[in-house]
């Protein structure tokens, strides 16, 4: 199978008074067409940096990126981005916000066609009734639905999701995961999503890529998620395989051993801003244990 998105030795560093501080180093990742991949890691490990480099919002220092056979340069509507905060323009309605992107992606289409596209996607995410409301009148969850609709409506080559549900309460999060999967199932866009929620990663993705802690973050471990699609959450939660994978992920996240080279404290101290060099205690991983798993033991 050919690779659709190729990240080759992608490196990001910032100049600092004590030499360049390397956030991400030699990050290699290949996505097949139609694959849903989750990038998981501790907060601050550089996973969002990788995503924003793919989105073209942040320039990589070294390395190369190829999407559908073309080198990626700069940002563009061929990648639909869903941000952590919905990033809607408050002076446009939900419709207007999605339309802004659609006008850009389908500049040859007629006005009716564009309107149809916008209405279709807003209805798909469940906002058929309130598409002419302003973001200020929508709940946080509904705003993120608009954000998702905007990304899909661009009909992009791939989707980039940067912790899209991170700011939502857990119930809304579960609901929106379903919405996202439902939309994704229609045209199987290649998707790269950043998250720190283990259950979310397992539920959504075909592969989970664990990143080692920064600085000099890189790919740590890659897990194939074998569950068949369409997925059903309760069936998944009844599957012992789910818990085995979950355990494996959590073990990786809480135990940073097995990372090549990352244990060297000298390298860490030399090359990174102070907060990132403080060794992370194992405790935060427990925080990622989701509500669902604890209520359905």
């Amino acid at each position: 199978m050919s690779d659709y998105l190729i990240l080759d030795k992608v490196t990001k560093s910032y100049p600092s008074p004590r030499g360049p501080s390397i956030i991400v180093k030699d990050f290699n990742l290949r996505l097949r067409k139609g694959e849903f991949v989750c990038l998981i890691g501790h907060s601050g490990c550089g996973k969002s940096t990788v995503l924003s480099m793919v989105a073209g919002l942040s320039e990589m220092t070294e390395g190369g990126m190829i999407l559908a056979g073309r080198e990626l340069v700069g940002a563009g509507p061929d990648r639909g981005v869903v941000f952590q905060s919905p990033c809607l323009l408050p002076w446009l309605t939900a419709f207007g916000n999605v339309m802004l992107g659609v006008e850009q992606a389908f500049y040859t289409a007629s006005k009716e066609e564009r309107t149809q596209i916008v209405e279709y996607y807003l209805t798909m995410v469940g906002l058929g009734e309130s598409m002419h409301k302003y973001p200020g009148d929508l709940s946080q969850g509904m705003r993120q639905r608009v954000g998702i609709a905007r990304a899909f409506a661009l009909s992009p080559k791939m989707l980039l999701l940067d912790e899209p549900f991170g700011m939502l309460d857990s119930l809304t999060r579960l609901e929106l995961q379903e919405v996202l999967l439902e939309l994704w199932r229609k045209d199987r866009k290649t998707a790269l999503m950043v998250t720190h929620d283990v259950d979310e990663a397992l539920f959504l993705s075909d592969r989970v890529v664990c990143m080692t802690d920064g600085p000099e973050a890189e790919v740590g471990e890659v897990l194939e998620i074998p569950f068949s699609r369409p997925r059903n959450r309760s069936a998944l939660l009844a599957d012992p395989e789910f818990y085995r994978l979950r355990e494996e992920l959590l073990t990786f996240l809480s135990d940073r051993a097995g990372r090549p080279g990352a244990r060297s404290p000298v390298a860490g101290l030399d090359s990174a801003p102070v907060p990132k060099t403080i060794p992370r205690p194992a405790a935060p991983a427990a925080k990622h244990r989701s509500q669902l798993a604890t209520t359905h033991p």
Binding site: A55, L57, G101, Q104
Partner: peptide
Amino acid sequence: NVARVLKL
């Protein structure tokens, strides 16, 4: 960022 991503 929205403007950049949409390439306005």
